[in-house]
Write a protein that binds this DNA or RNA. Structure first.
Length: 891
DNA sequence: ATCCTGATTTTTTTT
DNA sequence: AAATCAGGAT
């Protein structure tokens, strides 16, 4: 008894009041709103330990869900420190791992086998492309990427292909609907699921089979979720189903601020105000749409906003989906609910008799007209009957939680749906809300900088983070010549810090895109500083690894066409696309698996003699291997035999290139991973009976562990990663590199109006730092093989001057640039070039210039006719100016 | 069926 | 700069 008491005391020691309250809170739904660095992982892990110590739950009755493997690993480790080996019985994993685990036990109920293959993004993309081809859709007009994105979005909102098809409101959506349907059928046929399916299918499973749901929801007495603000609708539903029995759902969400245009809120004191004027922390009673009229013109050819105008039989029908998506004109993923109220005018047409909308059906209008007209529609934003948070709002993701204005997400691109926090409160009206506001991580300087940056996200002052740690050193902002100079600077500083006694493990470098790591890696290698890259070009995405995995996959899941086509001709065995599609077609007509069809090539009509022979040989070895696989020999052994007997290794050896050598080494590495799996004592993470060790298990494991998630904290490595990966981590010393416009904020995000999300990312980056923060940017950088000149990131400017210690290098001449510029004009064309540009401009690429109105800028391009392209640092615009006429001068 | 060449695209971010 | 792709030559 006394032991228990001291154990509890230890658990609660050093927690502040709200943290302690969260840890010890009893049964029932619990929402934790936690600011950056406020110790939410701590709260989560301590609560887990507390539940066990007080016998609220057995370890096997606890499921803790995170988004990334990294976070899951960290949570597992930290919980392990508190409860010891008992963590093994808990489910501490990502949504996807847990889903896969559940599905593996019950997939047969949904028409899959438990050997189903998991398709990653690339596999899925390929399949989408194939569906496009099959349906004869022009992949130029409808890119696989965009279709895939739409399908993914549909899945994440639990919209089935049928439901999607029902709601189609444009040609584009019709295409998506067609592909979506075909794509899903293909997956089922191939016994495969994509990442989204893992969630969707497990939701289906839990919804359709009471016994299954009952089983899991009774087992999981306590469900805990990290980064709840990043959940999408499917995940929300998933949690609901699992926590439905005991209702012990604890979610932890980060906290910031956002807004929704055109929305009014009722404040706690009864006053009404636009949501734009809310501050984080304000208390709100309710929120609702301000009714508004919008007038928009649609050409009869337009396919925007789901509006369709069709003329047939002397009548014209104007229709929208009932709840169409009126973006700020921006397409499919914005969600202002509106319906057409009436056709205001029809351009170029006499007044026409109209059928009132109501007599057709909402969102439709009909009038008599022989020809198609452009129609000006009056669109009415409908006052909502639902509470405002039933909308998923993009791109800003603003929301109100529990009556308190709060947060957003950096994972908008993945379909994250902030409204879940609201629905949480809606579903669990008795939810307890606890706010964690004190920051235990960073110096006040760093917090002030983060606050200052995030303040630019329209919603004004966020709740300011505060700390007792003290002011700390100023943020070091550095401008360098180019990415190489930047890398050298960072490397030099790291060297210095290490010499002064810092440990390498205390240092992290963040960048926006994975590609940026390369230059830095080069200099780090040269400086002999050990480092690790998190994420990035993934081991499991390498060609040879994917091939090897595809071989294994085919052995386990002979229906997997994707895997089969991948390996059938690598190494080359004389089976080209023609032969393959013959066999594929035959399999389709007969209705058998690709494996079966290929096993009997004689039966395939139109297959050439050479191809038949090739197939026989190939399938011969595959059959032998399959037998071996069924004997359940160790995976590593099977892999080895497979690589030898398929001739894959032989093929690589024959290449005799360094590259092939590298591939062989990678395959050896995969062999090591397999061997490790073979000797591991349990099939990870305990609990589930029947999850015995098998090839299938192995494949699932590596499908979900995207990277060789080997972040070793202990071994004294400097850590490199993208800002996205940095989420949830902290380091004493942080470098944020590549802080230039177009890089960060990223050009593509900028185009799509994702600036605020980028800013949030910047906020995340800054708040990772405990003690020292470096922010660097380069005057020039190579992008897509071409030199570009960038302005410093606006985020740099948003950090108050007095928090920084800015050092800007004197501009250097860009000798190498000029040398390249002359190379661009081949000697033969030199004369023509001269003629076209008679007055050689006084400007060169990279020159600093001053414009009377626009201010400072840099020359980013030269065009014929004496036109210079200048990017201005003031508003980040790029303008083309006539050099001789524009009021500009060199600086 | 395979290989070669020139053209085009690619870089968000994660499971 | 590197990777992927399409079309054509072998």
């Amino acid at each position: 008894m006394e032991d228990t008491q001291t154990e509890l005391d230890q658990l609660l020691e050093g927690l502040n009041e709200p943290q302690r309250e969260a840890v010890t809170y009893g049964d029932g739904p619990l929402l934790i709103l936690a600011g950056a660095g406020s110790g939410k992982t701590r709260v989560l892990t301590h609560r887990i330990a507390y539940l066990i110590a007080t016998d609220h739950a057995k370890p096997s009755e606890i499921i803790a869900i995170t988004f990334t493997n990294k976070a899951a690993g960290e949570m597992r480790d930290r919980a392990g420190l508190l409860v010891g080996r008992r963590v093994r019985a808990m489910w501490v994993m990502t949504f996807h791992s847990a889903s896969a685990r559940i599905l593996r036990a019950h997939a047969d109920k949904l028409g899959f086998t438990r050997q189903f293959t998991i398709y990653d993004q690339a596999d899925s993309r390929r399949l989408v492309k194939r569906c496009l081809d099959d349906l004869g859709i022009d992949p130029k007009r409808y890119t696989p990427a965009s279709i895939q994105h739409q399908i993914s979005a549909a899945k994440n909102s639990l919209t089935s292909p049928d439901e999607y098809a029902q709601a189609v409101g444009s040609v584009y959506e019709q295409v998506v609907a067609d592909v979506y349907g075909s794509y899903d059928r293909q997956l089922l046929r191939m016994n495969a699921m994509d990442f989204d399916d893992l969630l969707v299918r497990s939701v289906n499973l839990l919804e359709l089979f009471d016994s299954v749901r009952h089983g899991y929801s009774t087992t999981f007495r306590h469900v805990l979720v990290d980064e709840y603000q990043d959940t999408n609708h499917a995940q929300y539903r998933w949690l609901q189903l699992l926590a439905g029995e005991h209702r012990n759902l604890m979610v932890v969400g980060d906290d910031a601020q956002c807004l929704v245009e055109g929305t009014l809120v009722m404040m706690a004191d009864g006053s009404e105000r636009p949501i734009e004027l809310l501050n984080v922390g304000d208390e709100v009673l309710s929120a609702y749409r301000e009714p508004a009229r919008i007038v928009r013109t649609y050409r009869s050819t337009d396919r925007r906003d789901g509006v369709r105008i069709r003329t047939a039989g002397g009548r014209t029908l104007v229709s929208t989906r009932e709840h169409t998506h009126f973006a700020g004109g921006l397409g499919d993923n914005s969600h202002q609910v509106a319906v057409i109220s009436q056709v205001a005018t029809i351009e170029g047409a006499p007044p026409l008799p109209m059928t009132p909308a109501s007599s057709v059906r909402p969102g439709m209008l009909m009038f008599d007209a022989e020809q198609e007209y452009d129609v000006v529609l009056e669109v009415e934003r409908v006052p909502l009957t639902k509470p405002v948070y039933d909308l998923d709002i993009e791109p800003t993701h603003n929301f109100i939680a529990n009556g308190i204005v709060t947060h957003n997400s950096i994972y908008g691109f993945r379909g994250a749906d902030i409204t879940n926090i609201l629905e949480f409160e809606d579903t669990f009206t008795d939810a307890k809300v606890i706010k964690l506001e004190q920051n235990y991580r960073s110096t006040q300087t760093i917090l002030d900088a983060a606050n200052a940056v995030i303040r630019n996200n329209r919603g004004q002052k966020p709740k300011s983070l505060w700390t007792e740690i003290g002011q700390g050193d100023p943020i070091k902002v550095r401008e360098l010549d180019d990415e190489h100079a930047e890398a050298r600077y960072v490397t030099g500083e790291i060297q210095r810090l290490i010499d002064e006694g810092s440990s390498r493990a205390e240092i992290a470098v963040f960048y926006r895109t994975n590609a940026q790591s390369r230059v830095l890696e080069d200099t780090l290698v040269r400086a002999e500083i050990p480092y690790q890259v998190i994420g990035g070009p993934k081991f499991y995405e390498r060609m040879e690894i994917k091939d090897a995995i595809a071989y294994l996959t085919v052995l386990v899941n002979p229906q997997d066409v994707g895997a089969f086509t991948r390996i059938v001709n690598s190494p080359r065995r004389g089976i080209g696309s023609t032969s393959l599609s013959r066999v594929l077609g035959h399999a389709n007509t007969v209705g058998g698996s690709i494996w079966d069809a290929a096993s009997e090539p004689d039966q395939v009509p139109g297959l050439g003699a050479a191809a038949i022979k090739a197939f026989k040989r190939f399938m011969g070895t595959m059959h032998t291997l399959r037998e071996r696989a069924e004997q359940n020999i160790p995976v590593a052994k099977l892999l080895n035999e497979l690589l030898e007997e398929s001739g894959y290794l032989e093929w690589l050896r024959a290449e005799r290139t360094i590259e092939a050598q590298g591939r062989i080494e990678n395959l050896e590495e995969l062999g090591n991973v397999a061997a490790q799996y073979d000797v591991a004592d349990t099939p990870r993470d305990g609990a589930e009976a029947g999850a015995e060790k098998s090839l299938g298990e192995f494949l699932q494991q590596i499908a979900l562990v995207a990277d060789a998630d080997t972040r070793s904290d202990e071994e004294g490595l400097v850590t490199l990663m993208t800002l996205h990966n940095a989420k949830g981590l902290e380091y004493p010393i942080v470098f944020m590199i590549g802080c230039e416009e177009q890089v960060f904020p990223h050009s593509r995000a900028l185009e799509e109006g994702g600036l605020e999300e980028e800013r949030r990312l910047c906020y995340v980056g800054i708040t990772r730092a405990e003690r020292d923060l470096y922010v660097t940017y380069a005057r020039t950088r190579t992008v897509f093989g071409a030199r570009t000149f960038g302005a410093p990131s606006r985020f740099v400017g948003e950090i108050p001057e007095d928090l920084t210690d800015r050092e800007v290098q004197a501009p250097r001449r860009f000798a190498s640039i000029r040398a390249r510029a002359t190379q661009w004009n081949p000697p033969a064309d030199a004369e023509a070039y001269e003629r076209e540009q008679p007055a050689p401009t006084a400007y060169r690429l990279g020159d600093d210039v001053v414009h009377v109105a626009f201010g400072d800028g840099v020359v980013t391009g030269l065009e014929p006719g004496g036109i210079v392209v200048i990017r201005f640092s003031k508003d980040h615009s790029e303008r083309k100016l006539v050099a001789d006429l524009a009021p500009i001068s060199k600086r």
